[in-house]
Amino acid sequence: MVRFEISIDHSRCSDPLGCGICLKICPTAVFVARPSQMFKFRETPGALYRIKPLYASMCTGCMECAVKCPAGAVRVERSNVR
């Protein structure tokens, strides 16, 4: 069941690993940071990581992430899918 649709504005979220506030404060650890690209023989730089609400079904709608995000990149809305 998806109760909340969480969307991330990637143009505002420029350094997901350096900031990581949403990852740390979420009570149910809804978000993950993932490399958007892979490279030969070297690790993906932090700036190419993207935040993804992978475990969105565990969102309680507390809105901590939307309030605390310094860039205002997180939006949490009630979902139509039930």
Binding site: C19, K24, V32, R34
Partner: peptide, 8 residues
């Protein structure tokens, strides 16, 4: 932990 909790 890097992925889920953003550990440095």
């Amino acid at each position: 932990r890097r992925r889920s909790r953003g550990f440095k």
